[in-house]
Amino acid sequence: MEHFATLAALTLAAGTPLVFAALGELVAERSGVLNLGVEGMMLVGAVVSFIVTATTRHPWLGVAAGVTAGAAMALAFGVLTLSLMANQVASGLALSLFGVGLSAFIGLDYVSAVVEGIKPLAIPQVSDIPVVGRLLFAHSPFVYLFHTRAGLIVRAVGESPASAHAIGYSVARIRYLCVIFGGACAGLGGAYMAVAYTPLWTEGMTAGRGWIALALVVFATWKPWRALGGAYLFGGVTLAQFQAQAMGSEIPSQLLSMLPYIATIVVLTLISRDAIAIRLNAPASLGKPFHPDA
């Protein structure tokens, strides 16, 4: 029983960066903006939080800095796609490539640094308080999107920006806020990895989690609760792979390390096969720029 609780806690810990990143991206996509830069925002969030933690010795300050950095990256993406009407796919790729380069550059002096990370607050047999916090956090986008007026407006902007504009809402402003929220969440996911989960910084340490988060949003058919489940499912896969390696399995470690990526492809494929479910659930204006005059 105790072993099971430990495993559950570890699974939750492994899935948490994905939870943050996927839920943030989900909100952005619900407003009609596809931001492929999640990986870049996570990396920058991770490196900034790590550097701030290493220099100030205050992990929570580091987390705040990581969140801010992710939001700042998202703001740059917003300027490109929402103010300058750039292609969202290309801009998102640019954001990811830029984030990889930027984080490698500024993090170079901190690669072997050691920090005192955030310790989980242990409650015997139950798991930890951050988990409860995470569940609450995951609950909030759900409540926000489906049970508040503001969430209704976000969804309206994502479904039909022209209608939302016609009845007086500023499409650009709402999308900016959602994109920045997405960036802050991705930064939080990165900060969690660098300050709490590992805690260390290595180049490209998110190892594709930003991209997996994007796949999770599709997998969840843009519903927060399903994104949460998917993220922990992937936490489980990641954990199973580590466990198998630790137990000295006969299978080469590289094959085990492929598991999360292959699982992503399989899951994405299975869910996408149902073309109608995707079309009914995807925000209708996803990826399309909106300019009031055009």
Binding site: L80, L84, A86, L97, F98, G101, L102, A104, L108
Partner: peptide, 26 residues
């Protein structure tokens, strides 16, 4: 300087290109 500066320049170049492209259609 770290050679990672290459990636930084590459990303920045694409970023600025996409921003400058606004002038093609607007």
């Amino acid at each position: 300087l770290p050679s990672a500066v290459t990636g930084l320049f590459q990303g920045a170049l694409l970023f600025f290109l996409l921003a400058a492209d606004v002038l093609v259609n607007f």
